[in-house]
Write a protein that binds this DNA or RNA. Structure first.
Ligand code: ZN
Ligand code: ZN
Length: 717
DNA sequence: AGCACGCCGACT
DNA sequence: GTCGGCGTGCTC
C-alpha cells in the first residue's frame, strides 16, 4: 500500500494523507472518505505525511475519469493560497466547481427520419425546413427555429419523421486569418510587437495603453491570432459579464468562431462542456470572468486582461484575490505572454512598466480619424444651478443646442435613486439604515427609501423621530432619478432613457436599450456607472457630468485615480462617430488635479503626480498593504478583538494603522473594525500577519470575533 | 463545507 | 425525564 497526499476543496490548508493500492499521479481527481462522507479531492504534490496513526488513516476511494489538474494550475493554486493567506483547499474549490467532474453529456439531437410518412402540416414543414439548416439540433433549438413548441417536434419523432442523433459537444476552431482588419500604422507596430511576444513562448507582460477608440481590441486580437497560429490557447478576461456578449460577437467576427465562455451565468451543461473543452485543449479561445484563471488549460499561450484598471477584478469575499495580479502570476507559472489593456492604466501597472518589469506600448490616436472629445469644466461656484436644480445654465444651454440640432446627449451621475439623503427640515435628523452605517436613499416613488447595502426598505415617517415635526422630511442632493425629473421639465419633448442597475435589470433590457440608443431613437441618455463602459454610440456628441467631484471625497487612497479613470471613460463616449464630441464637467473644484488632467488630456501627468504623493509614505504600489477586518455580532466583541490585535501589533519595519471602524462600521447587522498593515515593498506581509494573529490568539483574541485578511485591499475610506 | 458532540430551555 | 436549539471542533 502506498501513501497519497490529497487536497480537499474545503477550508483546509494541509493536504490529507490516504492509503492506496497504487498512488495516482499528482493532479488526478479522486474521491476519498472524509468523516462519514465521500468527497472529491485532487492528488497533490506534497510529500504524504508518514506519521498518521493507522487507526485514522483511511483508504482512497476511487479515481475519477476526468482530466487531471495540470501542474502549472496546481502551483498557481498553491501560490494564490500563500499570497492571499487563504487555506489551499479553499482556493482549490475555485477550480473544482461541482458538476464539472463528470464528462460532458453528449447532446441528444435530431436528424431527418427514414420514414417519410404521416401528415405534413404547415407547422411540421417549418420544423423540417429548420432541420435542414441545423446540425443535429436539440428539441428546444429545433422548436425555436421553427417558431413552434416542443410538442410538434415530439409528434414528428413519434411519426418517424425525425430520428435521434447524438451530437458531440464540439467547440468550433477559431481561424486566425478569418477576417484580419486593416490596421493603422500605429496599430500595426503595436501588433507586431505583441505577435512577437506571443511567439517567444515565454513569460512577458505588456501594458497596452490606448485612449478610448484607439482600437486596442483589434491590436490584442492580433496577439490572439498569433497564439492560435502557435496552436496554443488564449484567455481573455473581462471585468464583468455584461461586457462578454459584446466581446464574443467581436471575436466571432474576427475569428469566424465564437469563443468558449466562462462566467457564473452559464448553465451547468455549458459550464461542463466548456470546462472539458478547455482541459482537452479543444477550446482555443476562452472569454471569461476572473474565475477563468482557475480553468485547467492544456496549453495556455496568452492571457489578456482587458480594462486592467477595473476595481471589479478584485474578488472581495472568500479568497480575496486581484485577477489582474493573479493573471500575471498565472502567466509566469505557465510561461506565457500576458497583455494588460486599458485606456487609463492603474498606477500599479504604470509603475511596473516604468520600472521595466512590463513592456509598455501606447496607442495615442483614435482609430479611423475620429478625434478625442474636447473636455471643459463648468465652475459651479461661478455659475451655480437654480435652487433645487442640479443642471447649471451652461450645461442646460449646451443640452438645448445639441438637442435642437438633432444631436444625441448623455448625462452622467454615478448615483442611483432619487436623492442620496433624506433629512428633517426641522432638526436635521437623517434617516439611516438600522443594519448598516449608511443613509437610506429615496427611490422612485416619493417617500420610498432603500438601503443600497442590505436592501432594507422603509417609508419616510410622517413624524420626525427626533423633533416630532410633521411631514418634515425633504430629499437632499441628486440621484439619476431626480436628474431625469429635471430633464423632463426642461426638455419635455426629448426622448430620454434612464440607465441604472435598478432600472435596467436584465441582459435583454440592457440590449434593447443599447440598440435604441445606437439607432438614435433616444435623444438624451441619463445614467450611472452602467453607461461608462465601452459602448459605441456613433451619434453621441455631448456628455454632461452632473457632479464631477462625487468620487473625490472620503479620503480613499485611490479616490483620485478611480475618479479620473471613470470620468475619462465616460468622456470617451462622446464623439466616436463622424461628429466631434464635447464633454462638460460640473465641478466646484476646477483646479483639482483630476479635473486638470481630464481637461488637459494628461492622464500620464496625473499618474506621475499621484506617484509623487504615494511614494514617500510607502503607499501602494510603492509599499505593501494588508487589511484585517474584525467582525462580530456584538460591538463589544468587535472592540475587544480589535484591542487584542492593537496590543499585539508588529513593530519592526512595518506600521499598523487603526483600529478604526471599517468602511461600513456595521454591515448587514455585523459590527466591523479594521486595522491596516503597511510595509515597505521588500517585506512580505504574510509571515508578519501570521505571527501577529498567533500572538493575538495567545493574548485573548475573542473566539466569537471573525478576522478576515485582505491582502492589497483596494477600497478603504 | 458537513457532521458530530454537547450542554441548557420547553414539551410529552 | 426527553426533544432540540445551534455553539465549538474535527475531518487523513
Ligand atoms: Zn442596510
Ligand atoms: Zn426632526
Amino acid at each position: 500500500m502506498a501513501l497519497v497526499s490529497v487536497l480537499l476543496p474545503y477550508a483546509f490548508d494541509a493536504a490529507f494523507t490516504y492509503e492506496a493500492r497504487e498512488a495516482p499521479p499528482p493532479g488526478a481527481v479522486v474521491t476519498v472518505p472524509l468523516g462519514r462522507r465521500i468527497v472529491h479531492g485532487v492528488v497533490w504534490d506534497d510529500a504524504p505525511e508518514p506519521g498518521i496513526a493507522p487507526a485514522r488513516l483511511k483508504t482512497l476511494h476511487a479515481v475519477i475519469a476526468t482530466p487531471a489538474l495540470p501542474g502549472p494550475l496546481r502551483r498557481f493554486i498553491d501560490w494564490v493560497a500563500q499570497y492571499t493567506m487563504a487555506p489551499r483547499g479553499e482556493v482549490l474549490a475555485l477550480a473544482l466547481k461541482t458538476g464539472l467532474l463528470d464528462p460532458p453529456a453528449p447532446r441528444a439531437g435530431w436528424a431527418a427520419g427514414a420514414a417519410p410518412s404521416g401528415r405534413i402540416t404547415a407547422t411540421r414543414q417549418r420544423v423540417l425546413d429548420a432541420l435542414a439548416t441545423l446540425d443535429r439540433p436539440t428539441t428546444a433549438e429545433l422548436a425555436a427555429a421553427a417558431g413552434t413548441g416542443a410538442a410538434v417536434v415530439r409528434g414528428l419523432a413519434d411519426a418517424g419523421l425525425l430520428r435521434p442523433a447524438v451530437r458531440d459537444p464540439s467547440v468550433p476552431l477559431p481561424d486566425p486569418d478569418h477576417a484580419p482588419p486593416a490596421l493603422s500604422a500605429a496599430q500595426e507596430e503595436a501588433a507586431t510587437a505583441l505577435r512577437a511576444s506571443v511567439a517567444a513562448r515565454r513569460f512577458e507582460v505588456t501594458l497596452l495603453e490606448g485612449v478610448t477608440g484607439a482600437g486596442k481590441t483589434e491590436v490584442f486580437c492580433e496577439a490572439i491570432a498569433a497564439c492560435l497560429r502557435e496552436g496554443r490557447q488564449a484567455l481573455v478576461l473581462v471585468p464583468e459579464i455584461a461586457l462578454s456578449a459584446q466581446f464574443a460577437a467581436r471575436f466571432a467576427a474576427r475569428f469566424g468562431a465564437a469563443p468558449a465562455l466562462w462566467h457564473s451565468g452559464l448553465t451547468p451543461a455549458t459550464r461542463r462542456a466548456n470546462y472539458h473543452a478547455v482541459a482537452s485543449g479543444a477550446a482555443r479561445l476562452v472569454l471569461g470572468a476572473r474565475s477563468a484563471l482557475f480553468l485547467p488549460f492544456a496549453d495556455p499561450g496568452l492571457i489578456v486582461v482587458d480594462e486592467e484598471h477595473e476595481a471589479a477584478y478584485k474578488q472581495e469575499d472568500g479568497v480575496t484575490y486581484h485577477a489582474r495580479d493573479m493573471a500575471v502570476v498565472r502567466g509566469r507559472i505557465s510561461g506565457c505572454a500576458v497583455i494588460l489593456a486599458s485606456a487609463t492604466p492603474s498606477l500599479e501597472s504604470a509603475v511596473n512598466a516604468e520600472a521595466g518589469r512590463y513592456r509598455h506600448i501606447t496607442l495615442a490616436a483614435r482609430h479611423g480619424g475620429a478625434r478625442l472629445p474636447a473636455i471643459e469644466a463648468i465652475d459651479l461656484r461661478a455659475a451655480p444651478p437654480a435652487r433645487g436644480r442640479f443642471l447649471s445654465p451652461v450645461l442646460a444651454g449646451a443640452l438645448e443646442t445639441t438637442l435642437e440640432g438633432g444631436g444625441q446627449a448623455m448625462l452622467f451621475l454615478n448615483r442611483r435613486g432619487y436623492a442620496p439623503l433624506t433629512l428633517c427640515r426641522g432638526c436635521g435628523h437623517r434617516l439611516t439604515c438600522p443594519n448598516c452605517t449608511a443613509w437610506l436613499v429615496e427611490h422612485r416613488r416619493p417617500g420610498h427609501l432603500l438601503c443600497h447595502h442590505c436592501g432594507h426598505a422603509a417609508q419616510a415617517p410622517a413624524k420626525c423621530p427626533d423633533c416630532a415635526a410633521e411631514q418634515s422630511f425633504v430629499p437632499i442632493g441628486p440621484g439619476v432619478e431626480r436628474i431625469a425629473e429635471e430633464v423632463a421639465e426642461l426638455f419635455p419633448a426629448a426622448r430620454t432613457i434612464l440607465m441604472a442597475s435598478d432600472a435596467i435589470t436584465t441582459a435583454e433590457q440592457a440590449e434593447a436599450a443599447l440598440r435604441a440608443i445606437v439607432a438614435h431613437e433616444i435623444d438624451l441618455v441619463i445614467g450611472t456607472q452602467m453607461i461608462a463602459k465601452g459602448w459605441h454610440f456613433p451619434d453621441l456628441v455631448l456628455v454632461g457630468v452632473v457632479d464631477a467631484d462625487l468620487g473625490l471625497g472620503g479620503g480613499d487612497l485611490r479616490a483620485g485615480e478611480r475618479s479620473a479613470q471613470l470620468l475619462h471613460q465616460v468622456a470617451g463616449r462622446a464623439g466616436r462617430g463622424r461628429l466631434p464630441g464635447r464633454v462638460l464637467l460640473q465641478t466646484y473644484a476646477p483646479e483639482h488635479p483630476v479635473m486638470r488632467a481630464l481637461i488637459g488630456n494628461d492622464l500620464a501627468g496625473f499618474r506621475r503626480a499621484e506617484a509623487d504623493l504615494r511614494a514617500p509614505g510607502h503607499w501602494p504600489p510603492f509599499g505593501r498593504l494588508a487589511a484585517l477586518i474584525v467582525s462580530a455580532d456584538e460591538a463589544a466583541t468587535a472592540d475587544a478583538a480589535a484591542a487584542a490585535l492593537a496590543r499585539t501589533q508588529p513593530r519592526d519595519g512595518v506600521q499598523v494603522l487603526g483600529p478604526a471602524p471599517a468602511p461600513f462600521a456595521m454591515l448587514r447587522g455585523r459590527h466591523r473594525r479594521r486595522l491596516l498593515l503597511r510595509a515597505p515593498r521588500g517585506i512580505a506581509v504574510q509571515p508578519v500577519l501570521r505571527a501577529w494573529l498567533d500572538r493575538a490568539r495567545a493574548e485573548g483574541l475573542p473566539r466569537a470575533a471573525r478576522i478576515d485578511i485582505d491582502i492589497d485591499p483596494i477600497s478603504f475610506l
